[in-house]
């Protein structure tokens, strides 16, 4: 079954069987491996991408349900100030969850340019980090928010 997608501003047309997830299409069909799969069942946030700016879990999003919503992955956010802020704050350890964290955080900042601690914690609570970079993630988001925030 053919699916048409807009990902990071680029148009794609490909064959995908019913039941294929957006994460599989991104990673396996398009080689966009910045999106990670850590649990594969919607519990950890590592696979987070945005659909029209809203964070969704791509590992439990069927690709045929995406429709004409714009997909944004970490590859589309590489120049986002959050990336530099995460590095400066040391908000990556093993880094496996980091792309998902940045995708979620950028959606937060787009909706709320200067979030409070509580708002950050609420928005980011679905993105697990086993290394425990959370204090640094909070710092990184505040840094960007302090700079005028998001996009």
């Amino acid at each position: 079954m053919v699916v048409e997608l807009t990902i990071n501003g680029n148009a794609y047309e490909l064959e995908a069987p019913v039941g294929r997830t957006l994460a599989e299409v991104l990673r396996l069909d398009l080689g966009l491996t910045g999106t990670k799969i850590a649990c594969g069942e919607g519990h950890c946030g590592a696979c987070t991408v945005q659909l029209d700016g809203v964070p969704v879990l791509s590992c439990i999003t069927l690709v045929h349900t995406v429709g004409d919503r714009e997909v944004t992955t970490i590859e589309g956010l590489r120049e986002h100030p959050l990336v530099e802020a995460f590095v400066e704050a040391d908000a990556t350890q093993c880094g496996f969850c980091t792309p998902g964290q940045i995708v979620t955080a950028s959606a937060l900042l787009a909706a709320n340019a200067s979030p409070s601690d509580d708002e950050i914690r609420h928005a980011m609570a679905g993105n697990l980090c086993r290394c425990g970079t959370y204090p640094k993630i909070e710092r990184a988001i505040h840094t960007v928010a302090g700079d005028g925030g998001g996009s």
Binding site: G31, D90, P99
Partner: peptide, 21 residues
């Protein structure tokens, strides 16, 4: 010192075992 591989990890460019095809 910030991590020498921080950008690669944060930008999703770092290839983990899971990313190798």
């Amino acid at each position: 010192a910030t991590r020498v591989d921080g950008l690669a990890r944060a930008r999703g460019e770092a290839r983990y075992t899971q990313d190798i095809q």
